[in-house]
Nucleic acid binder design. Structure first.
Lengths: 208, 208
DNA sequence: AATCGAAGGATTGTTGAACAATCGCTAAAT
DNA sequence: ATTTAGCGATTGTTCAACAATCCTTCGATT
């Protein structure tokens, strides 16, 4: 049912998330068209989709490249996250939405017990996705989804360090507890502190 | 220097903003290609661009239509605005950014003096764009730009009523003054109240 | 008469090939 | 060593064709 262009975009998104395609890598239309057995024109449409999600950058007449976040971009991304996530948590949200946050915390706990670093990362993303979902806005959800997708792009370096996520589980648990207890202001403060620390870590890893 | 697809997208964006293309109108690839003297394929790429901005909706195998906001969308858009604008103003911002807000207020005052309803509307958009710019985030700016573009789509109905904007000038002036005085919390409250009232008005106009 | 279903027409989705425009690189010339 | 000229590869765009899908109309059935 999904169009071919969509499936091509999905495949590329997957390869981006898996780290098969690394930042700054060049994507040549003809080779991808051949590899996936589709027309060059279709690849083009897929590129347009990915470009609109900032996963890929178009350099006119030069080609498209896997996006790479520079120091300024890291701060920018975290600014967006602070604005959206903190506002969302301040709003409280429906019981089901809060339950989704709790579920993400549990998912993380399970992944940690299984020593599944990969799962730990996605659980964390689910957690922050659930935080934004508190606001109950379709548009905010898609914005957040895009930001998270953008972040996955340069998380691979960081993921190498298994200790990168160390401690964030406790943070999430604490934030979730405050949220459930209705201590929204406290939850917001904790979340903000977490984001600041996370940005700092990212800046270190990507620092030069 | 801009690509043909970009120029087609620009032209369509213009026609959307001008109200030449009304919500729910159908955009047929072949006619647009003919009208603008470009290939159908190029029109397709332009469509992809507009669809990513939510100005246009793709119904698979049925065509693309000018987006039309439904009651739920109106609330959703204002939720995004509340989250982003209020957060931005709470952050304060650089003196130049504050000056830009003031400039937008003046722009509105001039338009009002000239009885220029059209100008009044764009001045208001500049005002809110400047508010978001306080946060100094490229991503937040583009998000806000898209939201405003989305709103222009269904503002045409409202613009008929010249009194629709009545009073908002004073609001902006007051918000700006509070911002300049460093009374950020008060500015945020005023802005929030304005957005709530604005949403209510929109819901009335589009209500059924 | 109302409902259902089968052509028919129109539009989108996708392909393939072609060509111009543009860029990066290499090699020649000063 | 610097500049220039040209070459090769890739993108940007067009065109033409065909398959897939949808909407409508028309007719058949009950």
């Amino acid at each position: 049912m999904p169009s071919v262009a969509d499936r091509v975009a999905d495949e590329l998104r997957l390869q981006l998330a898996e780290g098969i395609l690394l930042p700054r890598a060049r994507l040549t239309e003809s080779t991808i068209a051949e590899d996936l057995g589709v027309s060059r024109n279709t690849v083009r449409e897929a590129f347009a989709e990915l470009a609109s999600e900032r996963l890929v950058v178009r350099h006119p007449n030069r080609g498209v490249f896997v996006a790479s976040l520079e120091p300024g971009d890291i701060h920018d991304v975290y600014t967006v996250r602070r604005v959206i996530e903190v506002s969302a948590i301040r709003g409280g949200g429906s019981p089901e939405a809060v339950a989704a946050v709790r579920a993400a915390v549990e998912e993380g706990r399970l992944a940690a017990a299984a020593n599944d670093d990969e799962g730990l990362g996605t659980a964390n993303q689910h957690f922050h996705k659930a935080i934004v979902a508190l606001a109950g806005s379709r548009r905010l959800n898609t914005i957040m989804a895009q930001v998270l997708a953008e972040m996955r792009l340069f998380f691979h370096k960081a993921t190498m360090d298994a200790h990168f996520y160390s401690g964030y589980l406790k943070d999430n648990e604490e934030i979730c507890a405050a949220l459930e207890a209705g201590e929204l202001e406290r939850a917001a403060e904790l979340l903000l502190a977490y984001l600041d620390r996370s940005e700092e870590k990212q800046a270190e890893v990507h620092g030069e």
